[in-house]
């Protein structure tokens, strides 16, 4: 599935030109392998997510 572009750079061979990172995110319960498949609204939602700090009070 990974088509890594290879190019010869004089003496040393380079790979990975144009290859993006995969970013797996959960969207309405389902995982999606890349943000490209999200619809516009959900893309916006993912971009606006903030993290939730785990504070001491969570400790039981």
């Amino acid at each position: 599935m990974e088509n890594l572009n290879v190019q010869n750079n004089d003496s040393e061979m380079m790979v990975g030109e144009g290859v993006g990172f995969e970013r797996i995110r959960r969207i309405t319960g389902y995982l999606v392998g890349t943000l490209d498949r999200f619809n516009n609204a959900k893309r916006a939602e993912v971009n606006e997510r903030v993290k939730h700090a785990v504070t001491r009070e969570v400790k039981l």
Binding site: L4, M14, V15, G16, V19, G20
Partner: peptide, 27 residues
Amino acid sequence: GRHEGEAVSVEKLRSLGCWNGNVDCGY
């Protein structure tokens, strides 16, 4: 150490122990 979309040298991958010479797959 590559940015998204950037190429990285095979030398570097080899030194990291993650190059198997498989150009088609790279992985």
